[in-house]
Amino acid sequence: MNKKQTITSIKEAKGKEPLVMITAYDALFAKLVEPYADMILVGDSLNMSFLGKSDTLSATIEQMIYHTNAVCNGAKKSFVICDMPFGTYNTKEEALQNSIKVYKETPADAVKIEGGKDKAHIIEYLTKNGIAVVGHIGLLPQNVRSEGGYRVKGKDEIEIDELIEDAKAVEKAGAFCIVIEGVKPKAAKEVTKSVKIPTIGIGAGADTDGQVLVWSDMLGFFEEFKPKFVKRYLNGAELVKDALKNFAKEVKSREFPDEKHSY
């Protein structure tokens, strides 16, 4: 983007041009992402795609700060959001302490917190103390063990009503944006209509105010599994494998380095 987004411009995008959010974990990819993303999310998904863990739960605040700094170094004009990892916002005091740590040690513009009504008091406490917050409702990756897996939400009217209540509570608490993950399209549409702040969908259909994908999913680098909602815009892993294969072949045959690539 030519001009860095602000909380005001993000909120004003509601119902207008869809917002683009993409994850990034390092300076290299952040620089590539920056021209096309309204927001860059340093997601705790890095625990899986970057570190090879089975879920996001063991990510630490120190890891998130390290990667947030890397992203900010690569995309200095981007609106960057730091995902608050599991166990760092169990109480409002703990949430504020860790969010202040993020703000002091990185140039992050905001933090993201999973949870609806149950986390509204924490979001309110943060926003009243100068912390910008992105909410996250629906399927919550940090609840994967307590819920026995990744459960799609919004399957009936009761669940839709619960999601709407969550969204309204998060909005009232002061969040400027809400990620809606893993919900039925009808539910996401109803939630989006129910609040005045933008919604960013992931696995939530096309009627939200924007979309987010994990970079390693959308570019085809993460091969362990492919969620139904992921569209691969590049077969990244195959391209890299072909390049590595060619490099190894040329080294073995002494084709590389040749005169052109020697001093």
Rank of each mutant, 00 (worst) to 15 (best):
M1W: 05
Q5G: 13
I7A: 09
S9D: 15
I10E: 05
A13Q: 13
K14Y: 09
G15T: 03
G15A: 06
G15E: 05
E17C: 10
P18Y: 09
L19I: 12
V20C: 10
I22G: 05
T23V: 11
A24Q: 04
A24G: 14
A27V: 05
F29L: 14
A30C: 10
L32D: 13
E34S: 14
M39Y: 03
M39V: 14
L41V: 06
V42F: 00
D44H: 00
D44M: 01
S49R: 04
S49C: 14
L51F: 07
L51D: 04
G52M: 02
G52T: 02
T56S: 05
L57N: 14
A59C: 07
T60Q: 08
T60E: 06
T60F: 05
I61Y: 08
E62M: 04
Q63R: 09
Q63K: 07
I65Y: 06
I65W: 07
T68R: 09
A75D: 10
K77E: 13
K77H: 15
S78W: 03
V80S: 13
P85W: 11
P85F: 08
F86W: 15
G87P: 04
E93C: 03
L96T: 08
I100V: 15
P107V: 03
E114N: 07
E114F: 03
K119T: 08
A120Y: 02
H121L: 03
E124D: 13
G130P: 01
I131V: 14
G135F: 06
G135D: 10
S146I: 15
G148R: 06
G148N: 09
Y150V: 11
V152W: 08
V152M: 12
K155H: 06
D156R: 08
D156M: 05
E157Y: 11
E162D: 10
L163C: 07
L163V: 09
L163F: 07
I164H: 08
D166M: 10
A167F: 01
V170N: 10
F176K: 03
C177E: 10
I178E: 01
I178N: 04
I180Q: 00
G182A: 03
K184M: 11
A187I: 00
A188L: 00
A188H: 00
T192N: 00
K193S: 12
K193D: 13
V195P: 04
P198R: 00
I200Q: 07
G203Y: 00
T208N: 05
V212Y: 03
V212W: 02
V214F: 01
V214Y: 01
W215F: 11
F221R: 09
F222W: 13
E224Q: 12
F225S: 12
K226P: 08
K226H: 04
F229I: 04
V230S: 12
K231Q: 08
R232L: 03
G236M: 05
A237H: 10
N246T: 09
N246E: 14
A248D: 15
V251E: 12
V251N: 02
K252I: 10
K252S: 14
S253A: 13
D258A: 02
S262L: 06
